[in-house]
């Protein structure tokens, strides 16, 4: 469960304060599929980074599974990212020189999982994204959709309580994008909590709940039943 309480994020650029988030409070329950939308500059990426413990809010509190994140040191946050959060990026961010398997193993390496178990779990994660036939390919040998599936497998492999996706379909054509979203839907049905940041309408159509941001504030929080 995610609880954000009056989160503000202010960037100081050349002595001018620019507010990216102006006080955001929200709660996201387990097994929700949430889409965060909004025009560019509305603060949705910043919110995602804060929820994902990559960044710290200027003020306000963030609780993940009732744990206060603001008090944690960098190393503890790295551990939270490793264990509780899986990231999916627009640019995939795979290690270009490593095979799919090795890419998916990466979070497990940092978790200190031994070699054999790592390979086993990475294989299972790759099966879940239907990429079991691409274990030893490198990213440049894969299509964009395949790369994103590898990235999703990497996000899944630690069995995180939350998967955060930042414009996951932004670099894909709409047909491939639909495939990825279908995969998200499947993961949601399997019990994962998903937050997808996007500015594309068709993407948010897959979500249960759409949070619309504007100028660093929640403009609309809409729940619907998709299933």
């Amino acid at each position: 469960m995610i609880q954000a309480i009056n989160i503000k994020k202010i960037y100081k650029i050349e002595k001018v304060n620019i507010a990216a988030l102006n006080g955001i409070s929200l709660e996201i329950e387990e097994e929700e599929f949430v889409s965060i939308t909004g025009p560019s500059g509305s603060g949705k990426s910043t919110l995602m980074h804060i929820i994902g413990c990559l960044d710290r809010p200027t003020s306000g509190r963030l609780l993940l599974d009732h744990g206060e994140m603001g008090k944690l040191k960098d190393n503890a946050l790295a551990e939270i990212r490793n264990k509780k959060i899986g990231f999916v990026f627009q640019q995939f961010n795979l290690l270009s020189r490593s095979t799919s398997l090795r890419n998916v193993e990466l979070p497990l390496i940092y978790a200190g999982v031994d070699r054999r178990e790592r390979a086993e779990r990475a294989r299972i994660a790759l099966e879940r994204v239907e990429m079991a036939h691409r274990l030893y390919h490198r990213p440049n040998e894969l299509s964009g959709g395949e790369r994103q599936r590898i990235a999703i497998a990497r996000a899944l492999v630690t069995n995180p309580s939350l998967i955060l996706a930042d414009e996951p379909t932004g670099n894909l054509d709409s047909k491939t994008g639909e495939g990825i979203l279908g995969l998200f839907q499947k993961l949601h049905q399997e019990g994962h909590t998903l937050i997808v940041v996007t500015h594309e309408k068709y993407v948010s159509a897959y979500a249960q709940r759409i949070i619309h941001l504007k100028d660093g504030l929640i403009e609309q929080d809409e729940r619907r039943n998709t299933t």
Binding site: G52, L54, D74, N75, A78, E79, R81, N82, K83, F87, F89, Q91, N93, L94, L95, L106, P107, Y110, A111, R154, T158
Partner: peptide
């Protein structure tokens, strides 16, 4: 730089 960011995102500590 991006690789470093990615590694940090998946749980690499600064010491790693």
């Amino acid at each position: 730089t991006r690789e470093i960011g990615t590694r940090m995102a998946v749980g690499a500590k600064r010491s790693d």
